[in-house]
């Protein structure tokens, strides 16, 4: 079997090497890839879309249809994690700490319901004493990370950035919260329901903006059809792209958190890392 694998690898490598014989030179400005369509995008983007960032205009307008499905792929990934990992059964054993004294209650029977007062806190099995420095630094950092994420989303039209990057940055700020405090802090702050709704809503914003163009008299995704709806019809394509990017940002942010929470807690949403 291993021998067969070596043969297949060699054949594939040989094929790839054979393919290189006709490659255009490295960085050749007259190669088909840099002449056929690139010229059009470089020359016409501003005129067509009023967006100075060519990458964004190709991503969200010329080939926006691909990006829409990429967002759907991300949504699918989050959904797959949820559907496969989510485990609604409770944990077998639980631990509570009495805050004033530090005495720990160990509940061995997971089915038994136990009402504890406010003086007790539900804690992880492998409980680590909280580190004041880490907590404080992260508490200061997180809001700035989130503001930066929003900046990246909003500024995608003009500079490098956009929904995917911004969404990932925002999502990582949530994960940082979960790591520096504990998973329960994150889950209590942002409910699973909210994350689920945001994931679907984000993609829905994208597809919705694209679909509204149809009854408005344009083709699917043709932002110009939205001109009567916006305050600045001259920049309607840029505004359409901004709306779409915001949708992407929502979806990516929520899916990052969903994937993290489900994998780390093995779908139980109680404790992890």
């Amino acid at each position: 079997m291993k021998f067969l694998g070596v043969i297949i690898v060699c054949l594939t490598g040989g094929l790839l090497l054979y393919g290189t014989t006709d490659f255009p030179d490295w960085g050749d400005p007259s190669s088909p890839a840099s002449t056929h369509l690139s010229d059009y995008y470089i020359e016409k983007t501003i005129e067509d879309t009023k967006v100075p960032n060519i990458v964004t205009s190709v991503l969200a307008d010329y080939r926006g249809f691909d990006t829409m499905f990429e967002t759907a792929v991300i949504f699918t990934a989050g959904l797959a994690c949820f559907i496969l990992l989510r485990d609604f059964r409770g944990k077998k054993e639980r631990f509570y700490r009495h805050k004033p004294t530090g005495v720990v209650l160990h509940v061995k029977d997971g089915k038994k319901t136990l009402t504890v007062g406010k003086e007790f806190e539900h804690m992880d099995k492998d409980w680590v004493p909280s580190d004041l420095i880490i907590k404080t630094v992260c508490r200061i950092l997180i809001p700035f990370i989130q503001i930066y994420a929003m900046y990246v989303v909003a500024h995608g039209d003009f500079s490098p950035g956009g929904g995917f990057q911004g969404g990932v940055i925002f999502g990582s700020s949530l994960i940082l919260l979960a790591i520096s405090y504990d998973l329960k802090t994150l889950v209590n702050r942002i409910k699973e329901k909210v994350l689920g709704i945001f994931a679907a809503l984000g993609v829905l914003i994208f597809v919705g903006i694209a679909a509204i163009c149809m009854p408005m008299g344009g083709n699917f995704l043709d932002y110009t059809a939205l001109a009567p709806l916006v305050w600045d019809p001259h920049h309607v394509r840029a505004l359409g792209m901004l709306g779409v990017e915001i949708g992407v940002g929502f979806a990516v942010m929520a899916v990052m958190a969903i994937i993290y929470i489900n994998i780390v807690s093995e779908g139980r949403h109680d404790e992890g890392l």
């Binding site: 369509l37 059009y40 307008d61 926006g64 083709n219």
Partner: peptide
């Protein structure tokens, strides 16, 4: 059918 109204090689 042209997505976003762009002519074929440019758009999808």
């Amino acid at each position: 059918y042209r997505m976003a109204g762009w002519a074929p090689p440019m758009g999808i």
